[in-house]
Structure formats: C-alpha cells, structure tokens
C-alpha cells in the first residue's frame, strides 16, 4: 500500500519509456482504484446493515431499551440476567436436542443413501431429484403440509390409530412435539445433504475403489477404511452447515408449534424473537443476540476453515 502512495502521479507516469518500476506502480494504482470502485457498494452495504447495527446492538445490550422510549444505561444487568434465566436455559437445552437429533440422523441417512446414488445413471438421477423435492419447497409450504399431517384426523394420527397405537396429539403434547418437528426437518433436509455427498463421492478417484475391490475388501471395510477418510472434507462441510443451520432455525418452531407446548420447542432464535418483538425487551434480547452472534462468529470461522480446508493434508 505504501508503494501505491509513493508512486509518481500525473502525466509524468505516461511518458513512453519510463522505468519498469514506475510502470508497475502506475498499474498497481489503477488496479487499486478499480478494486475500490468494484467493492465499494458491497462494503457500504456491509457497513450499514451489518457492522453498524452490530455495534448498535452491543450498545443496546447495556441498556433497558424497549422499542418505545429512551435507552437507559444499565451496565451489565442484562448479561447478569442471562445467567439465571430459567427460560433461557430451557431454550439452550431445547436447541441442543433439536440440533443433535436433527443433524445426526439426516447426515447419517444422507451418507448411506449417497453411496449407491453417486453411481451415474438415469434411475439414480431421478431418485436424487425426487429426494430434492422437499428441500426445494418453501419452508412455509412444508410447514403447512406437516401441520395438516399431524392434525387431529390427519395422516399421522389416522395411521398410528390404524396400527392400534391410539390417538396422539403430535404437536400438542410436550412429550412428542419436538420429535414431530425433527421428523419434518430430517425429511426436508435429507435431499440437500445427499446431493452434497454424491458430488463429493463423484469427485473421488475411482481407481482407489477398484483397487480395494480387487483386494477383495468387503463393502463395509471399504466404507470405513477408504470412502469415509476420503470424504472427510465433504463430511465436515456438511456437518458445519447442518449445525449452523439448525442452531439458527426459526421457521419450523414458529410455524408448527409457536414454541409450545409448555416451551418444549422454544429454540433459541424463537426465544430471541419473542423477547425482542413479543415482549419488546430489546435491551435483554440484544445481550442474548450479542452472545449468540459471538458463538456464530466462531462457528463461521470454523466453516471458513473447512471451506478453505485441505491445506493441512
């Protein structure tokens, strides 16, 4: 950057036989100008809608701001209250269960299905497209479908009854509501992860598999000793986007159960939303948002490491 500033300016730089160094620094200056011009709009957007608001949230988290009226400084009060808020502790537990119990089965099932599906062919292409249908449908649409499937007299209810299991209030009973949500989410995301895994498998060197097959390695052993290690990067990638996605998942709980019954499905984003826009406790919600944003920033950095990955190999 200092080079750019030291570069000779004005018409002198345009003299035909200038020294190599001068010509290069003139080009650098033009490059810098173009770079700034091209990235300025995005930079401005980021500053206005991400950076400044984030700083503002940090400030609000030290106040009792309530959307209406002034923000009074309360120091660390909001953060202290985070520590002994039983409702928040419930939300953390609920979010942890939701994340683990939706991510693990989806990823495992997706990997299992991707192994045979990665083989090229018309049938496999169709099957992959079929799996992708729920993934592409809007969440609002799939939520309505599942609300009706879980409704009294809906498909889930009548099927269970038909099997002699009696009637269950799938979304209204706090013992089952979370699992009902998880079933929908697994159904929704499976196709996405299958797609990423098949792309990963298709990118692998087929020779390795063939060598293993010639070795007479059994399918299960091939999977654990060859396929899985080679797919490590893809698996990590899927896990990171699945976990960051699940932790910030808002719509399923908002549309299917509104966090109920008895807060059994009140995930963190929903708790944040309710505090900020339901109870208008903006200061408190800001403190929670700051903590969660820091957690997400760490996960975001992890995601980048995975995306960039491979350098350590």
């Amino acid at each position: 950057m200092s080079l750019v500033r030291a570069a000779p300016a004005g018409p002198a730089a345009r003299v035909a036989k200038r020294p190599e160094g001068q010509r290069r620094s003139a080009r650098r200056r033009r490059t810098a100008g173009a770079g700034i011009t091209l990235s300025l709009p995005v930079a401005a957007f980021f500053v206005v809608f991400w950076v400044l608001p984030f700083c503002n949230t940090v400030y609000l988290s030290f106040t009792d701001y309530a959307l209406a009226g002034d923000a009074n400084w309360v120091g660390l009060e909001n953060y202290r209250r985070l520590l002994d808020d039983p409702q928040l502790h419930n939300s953390i537990k609920v979010t942890a269960i939701y994340t683990v119990c939706s991510v693990v089965p989806t990823v495992a099932l997706a990997l299992l299905a991707a192994l045979p599906l990665a083989r090229p062919g018309k049938v496999n292409g169709l099957l992959r497209a079929g799996l992708l249908v729920p993934a592409v449908m809007p969440f609002v649409a799939t939520s309505i479908i599942w609300v009706i499937i879980y409704a009294d007299g809906g498909l889930a209810d009548t099927t269970l009854d038909g099997l002699g299991g009696g009637h269950i209030s799938w979304l209204g009973d706090e013992r089952y509501a979370m699992w009902s949500l998880i079933v929908m989410v697994v159904w929704k995301h499976l196709g996405l992860f299958v797609l990423i895994f098949t792309a990963g498998i298709q990118g692998l060197d087929r020779d390795v598999f063939e060598a293993a097959a010639l070795d007479g390695a059994k399918a299960v052993r091939t999977f654990f000793s060859i396929t899985l290690p080679l797919l490590r990067r893809t698996l990590l990638f899927v896990l990171v986007i699945a976990v960051t996605g699940a932790m910030q998942s808002f719509i399923p709980a908002y549309l299917l159960t509104q966090g109920g019954p008895a807060n059994a499905t009140e995930v963190l984003p929903l708790y944040l939303y309710n505090n900020a826009f339901g109870f208008q406790k903006m200061g408190y919600a800001s403190a929670l948002a700051v903590v969660l944003l820091l957690v997400m920033l760490i996960l975001s950095a992890a995601q980048f490491r995975v995306l960039r990955g491979g350098e350590d190999e």
């Binding site: 770079g35 609000l60 975001s300």
Partner: peptide, 29 residues
Amino acid sequence: FPGRRLLFGTVIGTLALAPPMIMIPMYVI
C-alpha cells in the same frame, strides 16, 4: 486494493449468520 483483507474478513465473519441472529440489529437500523 487497500482494505481488501478487511472486506474479505467481514465477508468470512458473517458467512454463517442467518437472519434470526441478526434481525434485531437490522430491525433497529
């Protein structure tokens, strides 16, 4: 160009953020 690393850092830092986490700051602005 000057500021390139800073901009890239901001992009990376916000890569995993989804609307629920940033809605309060955005709403206020």
